[in-house]
Design a protein around this nucleic acid. Structure first.
Lengths: 224, 224
DNA sequence: CCGAGTACATACCGGTTAGTATGTATCGTT
DNA sequence: AACGATACATACTAACCGGTATGTACTCGG
C-alpha cells in the first residue's frame, strides 16, 4: 500500500542502527525510557518506523541495546578510564577522577544527571531485564574501583583494614547520590561540594603516616 | 447525561482527598509520575474522575500535592525523627538512624527505592515546579542534618574543621545513592553495606581523642 | 543477470491517556 | 424550606502510543 518512495536512501544498516541508538539514548536521557516516544526518536534519527522494527523487535529491546552499547561504554570510560591509564596510587587516581568530573561535567550532567542512574531508578522495579543490564554496568564500575583499591592495598597505599569491595560500592553510591542531588538542586556547586567531601573520605583511606608500612610507606600527602 | 447514580456516597471531601493522595502516592512510587495512570489511581482509591478533578486541577497538581503532603512528611520523619528526639551526641544519633534504616527498611524500600529520589530523578528536568517541591524537601533534610552537626560542633562532639552544611549534603547524597544502588541490585545486603561504610565515615568526624577538647571530651568510642 | 533475502518506507490499528461536558445528590446558610 | 455552592458521578473525546501489515527498492550470491 505504500506509494512512491519519497526519497532514495542509502542502505547502511550499521549507520541506521547507530543513529537509532544515539537518538534513543538522547530521548531516554531526557524523558526516561517509558516516556520516550518512538515517533520522537524516529524523527530525531531521521529514520522510519520500518527501519526501527527491522533492527529491534520492540521498544524494550531498543532500550536494552542503549544500555549495553551506549551507556555502559560511556560510564566505564568516564569513571574507570583515568584509573586504568594513571600509573600512580589508586586513591590519587580516584581523587583526580572526582576532581575532573566535578570540573568538567558532561554536556547535560547537571540538568539531566547520570543516564545510568536515571534508568536504574526508573526501570529496576518495572523490567527485570532492564534491571539486569543496568546492574551489570554498575557491577563493572564497582569492580573497577574495587580492583584499584585492592591494588592499593597490595602496594601499601591503601589501608589494610578496609573491605575494598564494600568501599568501592559505597563510592559508586556516593557518586550517584551526589549527581542525583545536584540534578535536583540544578547546582553544579553542589556536585563539586559533594565530590570534594567524597574525596576527603578517600583521603582517610590512606594508611596512617607513622604506621609500620610494609612496602611503599608515607610519601604522598596531597589533598585535592 | 449522567444516568441514575449507582451508589449513594457520603460527602467527605477531606477523606476523599486523602484517599486520592494515598493512592496516587502508591502508584507514583511504583511506576513513576508520568507512567502513573489516573484510571489506576482512581480504581485504587475507589473514587471517580469527577471527584479527582474537583479536588485537583490536573494530574500535575496531584503530583505536587503528593510531594508536599505525603512524601515530605514521610522522609523527614524517617531521617530527622530520631535526630530530633535523641538527646545524645548527633553523630551517634545519625549512626543509629542509619543502622535503623538498614535493619528496618520500609515495606518496599529495596524494591522501589526512595520515593523522593525517584521523583527527583524522573521529574527534575521535566517540570520545574516538581523540581522545586522535591528540592525543598531535600533542603529540609540537609538542613536537619546540618543543624545536628553544627550542634555537635558547638558541643565539641564533632570536629571543628569540617563544613557542616557540605558534610550534611554529602551524607544525604550518600544515603540516596546507597538506596538507589541497592534498588538496582535488588539487595538489602548492599544497602546495609553502604550505610555501614557511611557510618564509618561519620565516625571519622569525631574529634581526635587526644585533642584539647573544650567541653565534652572523649567518652564515646562505639562503632556500629 | 536474476532471484531472494535484506533494508527499509508508508499507512494503518486498537488501546490507553489526560482531560472535559454534563448531570445530580447532598450540604450549609438563611 | 429553598437555594446556591459543594462534592461528587458518568459518559465521552481527541491525541498519542507501541506495534503491525504490506509494499518496494537495493544488494549480493550464484
Amino acid at each position: 500500500m505504500a506509494k512512491t518512495p519519497a526519497r532514495r536512501r542509502a542502505r547502511e544498516p550499521d549507520v541506521t542502527r547507530d543513529k537509532l541508538l544515539k537518538a534513543a539514548f538522547e530521548e531516554m536521557y531526557r524523558r526516561g525510557f517509558q516516556a520516550a516516544s518512538l515517533d520522537t526518536i524516529l524523527a530525531r534519527a531521521k529514520v522510519t518506523k520500518g527501519a526501527l522494527y527491522h533492527h529491534f523487535p520492540d521498544k524494550a529491546a531498543l532500550g536494552y541495546a542503549v544500555v549495553d552499547e551506549v551507556v555502559k561504554g560511556l560510564l566505564l570510560e568516564r569513571w574507570l578510564g583515568v584509573l586504568d591509564r594513571f600509573t600512580g596510587d589508586p586513591l590519587t587516581a580516584l581523587q583526580r577522577t572526582l576532581q575532573y568530573r566535578a570540573a568538567n561535567p558532561g554536556p547535560h550532567e547537571i540538568e539531566l544527571g547520570c543516564p545510568l542512574n536515571n534508568l536504574a531508578q526508573e526501570m529496576s522495579p518495572i523490567d527485570e531485564r532492564f534491571r539486569r543490564a543496568v546492574n551489570a554496568t554498575f557491577d563493572a564500575w564497582r569492580g573497577g574501583f574495587a580492583r584499584a583499591l585492592e591494588r592499593g592495598q597490595a602496594e601499601g597505599s591503601v589501608r589494610q583494614d578496609i573491605d575494598a569491595r564494600k568501599v568501592a560500592s559505597f563510592v559508586v553510591a556516593a557518586v550517584e547520590g551526589s549527581s542525583g542531588l545536584a540534578k535536583s538542586a540544578q547546582s553544579a556547586a553542589m556536585l563539586r561540594s559533594n565530590l570534594t567531601v567524597l574525596s576527603e573520605f578517600l583521603e582517610s583511606l590512606r594508611p596512617a603516616a607513622r604506621t609500620r608500612g610494609r612496602k611503599g610507606a608515607a610519601k604522598r600527602g596531597a589533598a585535592n
